[in-house]
């Protein structure tokens, strides 16, 4: 597939916002002392990130003015379900922010809205991942690891971001809880992502040129795709990166998203003289931003669409 920048930005930005909100909600439910001003600020950050993701998703549409129609087919389409759950999640985060900001009842801001936020965040991860995992003939995606990768990558990037803002704002109690959680989430996300990448690299596609054309000859090559230049089929489904760039983005994504941030966190947790220093956490976030983009780019680029069998040779 040719990775669409709008979809990469949307899924990574929304995923990190979901992870941030889930980290804040779990800390709130666990009774961690968080100042109301910090909680409101962190929720506002998640809210803005989600709005940014929503904006990016609009850029993917050829006809954005008709976007409202995308909520119609929730009975059959995971994309439609995501279109409903994303605004719902933005709404829950907004309500929680309001409840914290204007000091609503402790049941609302301390229990019900955090619980709701966790539930809707999980649902959103599920919908987003199922958009890809439900396409049975894109075998790189049609696997439970897609759900695991989307959820854990979001949790990892969100908890690291949460730890960074907590360290920066001097929220010691929250940092003590969220810092080890961020390290564990990053480790788990990295391991499961490597599992998925290795599985996909070893995949032998079920469709072949023989099954695509029904011509049984052992040697079968295309001599013309039927046009002298490109078409939608050649633009949308081929990433067109050189083999070297492809490998570098794969390794770069793993390093920037998982390995190097984990090293920063290990240093902050176990080697630093001042465990509350914000610098290693901010560096981890800055490393993860390009790491998220590279890893998500690779998620799309690695998927070999069966239609590509029909578009091998121009002329």
């Amino acid at each position: 597939m040719n990775p669409a920048f709008s979809v990469i930005v949307f899924t990574t930005l929304a995923g990190a916002a979901q992870g941030l909100v889930v980290a804040l909600a779990l800390a709130t439910l666990g009774g961690v002392t968080i100042s109301a001003a910090f909680l409101a600020g962190a929720l506002a950050l998640a809210f803005v990130m989600l709005l940014g993701g929503l904006g990016a998703s609009f850029l993917h549409l050829g006809r954005p003015e008709r976007a409202w129609r995308a909520a119609m087919m929730w009975r059959t389409s995971w994309l439609s379900r995501e279109v409903i759950v994303l605004p719902a999640f933005i709404g829950v985060v907004g309500l929680w922010w309001l409840a914290v900001r204007f000091e609503a009842g402790p049941a609302w801001r301390g229990v019900l809205l955090p619980l709701g936020a966790i539930a809707v965040a999980a649902l959103l991860w599920y919908c987003t991942a199922m958009i890809y995992a439900c396409l049975r003939f894109i075998e790189e995606w049609a696997h439970p690891l897609t759900l695991v990768n989307y959820t854990l990558t979001g949790l990892a990037s969100g908890t690291v971001l949460c730890a960074a803002v907590a360290a920066w704002a001097g929220e010691g109690a929250l940092l003590r809880v969220v810092a080890p959680a961020a390290l564990v989430a990053t480790g788990l996300a990295g391991v499961t992502r490597v599992l998925a990448l290795r599985r996909n690299a070893a995949l032998k596609p079920r469709s072949t040129l023989q099954s695509a054309t029904g011509i049984a000859a052992p040697r079968l090559v295309q001599t013309s795709m039927g046009m002298s230049a490109g078409s939608f089929n050649t633009r949308e489904f081929f990433h067109r990166a050189t083999p070297l760039a492809y490998r570098q983005i794969r390794i770069g994504g793993l390093l920037l998203l998982f390995a190097l941030p984990a090293a920063c966190m290990l240093w902050a947790l176990f080697a630093s003289r001042d465990p509350a220093a914000p610098a290693p956490w901010l560096i981890a976030v800055l490393l993860q931003v390009p790491g998220l983009l590279a890893d998500r780019w690779f998620f799309f680029a690695q998927a070999r669409h069966p239609q590509n069998l029909y578009y091998q040779v121009v002329s």
Partner: peptide, 16 residues
């Protein structure tokens, strides 16, 4: 008149 140009159907067609 209803298509929003999200291209998801093209992704979901194995035949291009």
């Amino acid at each position: 008149d209803k298509c929003i140009g999200c291209k998801y159907c093209a992704w979901a067609c194995p035949y291009g």
